[in-house]
Design a protein around this nucleic acid. Structure first.
Lengths: 266, 266
DNA sequence: GACGTCTGTATGGTATACAAGACAGATACT
DNA sequence: AGTATCTGTCTTGTATACCATACAGACGTC
């Protein structure tokens, strides 16, 4: 989703997608796109705007929105014309959290870690092939890097991304990375080979540090959380100023690895 | 949902539901039922069992589940055959919370209140015509009343229920209450008139106390949170032992009302 | 007043998503 | 071995969900 997605032409999809012209679309798919759209925009959106944004017929959009509002998955927002996520989704989300040991404990560890260190700490996972911040706890620093939960970032931009792909073979990795993903925010382009080397190294050392990738002022320390031997289920990471001393960085990495290990095994 | 819901016969629906035999059902509706079913059961469920539980065709259920898993709304659970809520729902739920001042601040107030008083505290709202525990923070007592977030209870069983219906006229109230709702867990039956009187009284006094309704050992103190003058958007409540002294009860009510008032206005 | 752009609703035709059923494989019990 | 009950996949017909289109009302702006 991320980008505007015009739909008149399909740019680059998972591969085996077939789109017979702009034929009819299942209601369920429309709904899934609506949810993604709302998530991407992070605000209530009018029905008309929704239809336009998804390139969906207005009439269909109206009926689907009505059904979702009745079901409680969406709610009419303040001014009575826009919609956003509803209470039901909140309840389902809480149910997911309760049923998920790793997430529940991970959130606590992240909160604790950021309180203890004063740095921004995050719990990250792969979510449908993308790097996703599942929970983040801001540090005490004046410049807090605001990173909303659910934010998705190309895997090569992050230390966590390297760890999350450890254990996958080259083909799998290539399938998940597009060329765009390898272009950093400042315009530099990573080579795929370098990235894959990084992954192997991260896998071997059991942690990963990247400096100045997403922005020029921070470095990112990450450690893997295993759900089974060799299988990286999530990462914990710390975002610290790029000029953090070698010594303190080392201490933080040690702490991070210890906490991540605690979460492992499940 | 709540009960098993066999579906072969429709018991009591919103009224104007028309079910032309057991005709085809929209995929979206099937999905909505699936989510409700998972929420009611609070555990991962096999696809076959899901189909049976919803009285849905197996083939349809398989395809819908596959689509939802691909979309990330559901996830395959551990043993690889069962499904439960997925990360996407968690992310959407968090987005809902971020976008909802009342919920965000309400959660904090509830947590604070239960920490300060040692009693179980809850934030409650109407959710598609049902009383719903949106957030709860267990108290320090040995017998903690476990009440999962998302739990739905008939409105007449609770103090919050009386407040949530304040401001609605009699017709509206009657429409929301079924005869079953008036039967308490211990078998006693409330009269609708008494219940409506209670609502009026709660509205007038600005708080509500019920004793021994849901169970014989607790009483429930509730105070309204207003989103606009006269419009009750939510309630905060405390669940305390039924033999709590008059004096302490009074103090708690005062505290509760103060905190609920803080949340109001939005 | 005439025009444009929104909003929300109602309608009918048709592409297709749902349902039924058959299928093969796995597991279990007798 | 045989029977029973799971599982997941595939195919085929048809009821219907989607879509295009039209409509009425509420806003503006010129």
């Amino acid at each position: 989703m991320q980008d505007g997605e015009t739909l008149t032409e399909w740019p680059t999809v998972d591969a085996d997608e077939e789109r017979p012209a702009n034929s009819r679309e299942k209601g369920l798919n429309r709904v899934l796109h609506m949810l993604e759209f709302l998530h991407a925009n992070q605000r209530a959106i009018g029905v008309g705007e929704l239809a336009k944004g998804l390139n969906a017929p207005r009439s269909t959009t109206y009926t689907l929105v009505r059904e979702l509002v009745e079901a409680g998955l969406l709610e009419m927002a303040g001014d009575g014309n826009r919609v956003y996520f509803g209470k039901k989704l909140y309840l389902y989300g809480m149910a997911y959290m309760r049923g998920n040991d790793l997430l529940r404990r991970g959130r606590q560890e992240v909160d604790t870690l950021s309180r203890e260190t004063g740095e921004t700490s995050e719990l990250c996972m792969l979510q449908s092939g993308r790097y996703t911040i599942i929970h983040s706890s801001p540090g005490a620093r004046p410049f807090r890097i605001s990173s909303a939960t659910g934010l998705q970032i190309p895997l090569p931009w992050t230390a966590s991304g390297r760890l999350l792909l450890a254990g996958l073979d080259r083909d799998r990795i290539e399938a998940m990375i597009t060329d765009d993903d390898l272009v950093l925010p400042d315009g530099r382009k990573l080579s795929l080979d370098d990235f894959i080397d990084d992954i192997a190294r991260a896998r071997a050392t059991g942690y990963c540090v990247t400096s100045g990738l997403v922005d020029a002022y921070t470095k990112c320390l990450a450690a893997p959380v295993f759900s089974a031997p060799g299988k990286v289920e999530a990462t914990m990471c710390l975002v610290v100023p790029i000029d953090t001393s070698e010594e303190r960085t080392g201490e933080l990495i040690a702490l991070l690895r210890e906490r991540a290990a605690r979460l492992s095994i499940s």
